[in-house]
Design a protein around this nucleic acid. Structure first.
Lengths: 206, 206
DNA sequence: TATTGTTGAGTAACGCTGTTATTCAACGAG
DNA sequence: CTCGTTGAATAACAGCGTTACTCAACAATA
């Protein structure tokens, strides 16, 4: 095998145009993040992993913030896919509970991603408006589930759907954030998670 | 004034022994954190602000983690003082609401501290068991308020006090964390905060 | 075909970070 | 007076984000 043959992920994706290159680079970054945590997300480390120089990264993402933003959006996109994949059975209450479990599972299976999605991990990063809108849109299916539950008479008819949605999101995120922060010694478990989040649902039961 | 005269905060505290020195250094760190954010918390910056070398910091705190741990505990100590200062009027429900407002006010007035307290801000820092125990103890007054509310018959008698406490904490923290993350465009306001956290209380009302 | 202009990547540097080995000054004990 | 200890400063190491400079490869033009 000739030494000059391009074998890196960078060279392989380079032939397919800039967009493919960006995607490939983001894949590498996501892999690095999931495997080794946010500390491994340095420009040099990333360039080495992709077999290229840091210049390429700056052309593709502008700066490190660009990579952080891409990972932020990727994290919420994964969450969205995860939530969308939850089967909506006939029972709206069971569906809401399943969404909660899926949300938590997504967070715990890739905690580094969850931390990036909530401002931790990458020091100076603040998502722009568009990214935050995309993040909020990841919860569309939750909002729909809340609406369905109201219309099915399972939740109070006079309750605001947005209020329900935000309450549920905050409750789930709050518990998971404290769990990741180590504030529940010995972990939490699905049952305890259900207990600590059920108030957010039950308060809206007529 | 002779140039050799010790005028820095370091020199001033040095005369009072090691513990005073540590306290003074922590004060400087807390000021730097509150004023300029976690990015300003570098060993060199801190040493410069205290008019000493970085060596002193390593003797006092071991490593940067030591400073992070100290700020973590300081943040929760401030929270505790804040919550303890809330006047407990006769009405347990109003007291619980006031505790919630105080918790949020504390977080929003010094958001950098709140971020340090919840793992953000200082990349690699993970609090040890003792620090986390102290953090949990900051909420003792909330636990007491929950117990009082149960005993007053305001909350369900069969409800577990720890369950109520954790539910309230997670609800408040979840809303505030999302608020700091920019997920409520245009901010939140006390009224909206009350709305989004009231489910955590109302679910326990008999 | 020869020349020019453009695009894109690599190198090396700047100033910053956390950390520590080395050096040196001050002080108390013998 | 000398010795040992304590504690602070200096300077160095590797790594960080970022970018100015350099050069090679290719397209367009004369």
């Amino acid at each position: 095998m000739p030494a000059k043959s391009p074998t890196g992920a960078f060279a392989r994706a380079q032939a397919k145009g800039e967009e493919a290159l960006r995607t490939a680079m983001l894949d590498i970054a996501a892999g690095l993040l999931a495997a080794e945590g946010p500390a491994a997300l340095s420009m040099r480390r990333l360039a080495t992993a992709a077999d290229c120089s840091t210049t390429v990264l700056y052309r593709l993402f502008g700066a490190k913030d660009g990579i952080a933003a891409a990972l932020y959006r990727e994290g919420f996109a994964r969450l969205r896919r995860r939530l969308d994949a939850v089967p909506r059975g006939g029972d709206p209450a069971a569906y809401l509970a399943a969404l909660g479990r899926a949300y938590r599972a997504n967070a715990l299976e890739e905690p580094h991603f969850y931390r990036v999605m909530h401002g931790e991990a990458i020091p100076g990063f603040v998502p722009d408006e568009e990214s935050r809108a995309a993040a909020a849109a990841s919860l569309d299916v939750l909002r729909e589930a809340a609406r369905a539950a109201v219309e099915a008479g399972l939740l109070r008819a006079d309750a605001d759907v947005d209020e329900i949605t935000d309450t549920l999101w905050a409750a789930a995120h709050g518990v998971i954030s404290l769990e990741l922060g180590g504030h529940f010694p010995g972990g939490l478990g699905e049952e305890r998670f259900r207990v600590l989040t059920r108030a957010a649902v039950e308060a809206f039961v007529p």
